[in-house]
Design a protein around this nucleic acid. Sequence first.
DNA 1: CAGTATCCTCGGCGATACTG
DNA 2: CAGTATCGCCGAGGATACTG
Lengths: 104, 104
Amino acid sequence: MKLKNEYDCPLHLTMDLIGNKWKPLLLFHLLNGPLRSGILQKKIPGISNKMFTQTVRELERDQLLSRKVYPVVPPKVEYELTETGKSLETILRDLDAWGKQRML
Amino acid sequence: MKLKNEYDCPLHLTMDLIGNKWKPLLLFHLLNGPLRSGILQKKIPGISNKMFTQTVRELERDQLLSRKVYPVVPPKVEYELTETGKSLETILRDLDAWGKQRML
DNA sequence: CAGTATCCTCGGCGATACTG
DNA sequence: CAGTATCGCCGAGGATACTG
């Protein structure tokens, strides 16, 4: 990750944080509340196990979502948007709406 | 590109169209009007010549921008947002604003 | 100036198998 | 159920040189 003041424009920073195929998708599916790991993953057809774990880890590192581990067997893990993550809600819904428009 | 009705959710379509590091950046810099090829490219530090051409071609194919060639020497090419491209304006500005917020 | 062609490398990513 | 480890491929993408 670059230093913040190295960016030529703010959009560049944004794209570094969520500018790939999966991140917006993951965040979008968490808009309605926390989800268990398995459930969330099933909502993203086409993503591999590895990519899922990796992506979710990066989002956690960048404070866009939080990871909650329940000390039970079998293991239970939930992912939930942080406040920062939630601040993307409007954008995520707009992106979804835009796609919807193009599907017609 | 998948068939439109193969998508599980509209956002997925959107991400296929503009879900990478460079596309939103390119489109963003065209919001204020058409730009010559060289000028546009210089506005995107870090992009290679090859990636620039490739990305711009994909955006043209997907009807998000148009390419206008002037029959002069030396060559002059301008890129301009299509109506579809312009329909992303709000989203692009929001993404930029979001990044700005995070830079503080 | 704008773009193409070629080469080559590095790492993204899937597949599979395994652990707590 | 959730996640890690390992292997291996293939293609994204950079560097360079060249054309109209």
